[in-house]
Amino acid sequence: MKRSLGLGLVALATLVIVPVAKGSPSLAQLQNIGTDIVQQVVRPEVKLELKAAKQVQTLGAQGKTQLSWQPLEGEATVQPLDVLRYTISSANAGEMAAKNLVISQAIPPQMTYVLATARGNDGVEITYSIDGGESFVAEPQVEVVQEDGTVTLEPAPAEAYTDIRWDFAQSLEPQVVVQVAYDLTVN
């Protein structure tokens, strides 16, 4: 069984993000002995798994509205204004660390990003594009013309977001799983 520091589907629903595990000592030794050879035969192999869940509101005790996430499987249907949570699990099934891991996610044109919902492990740098993936910044800005004619930069609205990118500074060691997640609204 692979060693997963991520949590299962149940945990996914509450979106707990876990840190990337530190490197395995044995692998580090191997690399020290013969880096060139290892690189020819030992490769990292990152696998991505994407899952979606729909936010549902239920009336709980004392009549309070409770939010929960219902996994979407098969030919699921949604309605405009539904909020979906996408979770990407990334596992290194290879035998050496994956460096410079960057996970990218285009936002489908029929959906709108829910601001400040993209999450990842500590240390992951999350950046966004509002130009179809041409450029990424942490806080996208747009020019806004004020009433007096001056142009100022203001935070881009949710509708402008086109892509999300998670940039892992740390290496993803073999057998380790990381998760990132974000919420979208159906237009």
Binding site: P44, L48, L50, V78, L101, V102, S104
Partner: peptide, 27 residues
């Protein structure tokens, strides 16, 4: 609505790409 994630990574020398499964929902 079709959604799929991509990733890039490296072993220190070579760059690799990965793609996820596709999640499709119908409106």
């Amino acid at each position: 609505i079709i959604n799929r994630a991509t990733a890039t990574y490296s072993d220190g020398t070579t760059n690799f790409n990965a793609i996820s499964n596709t999640v499709t929902v119908k409106v």
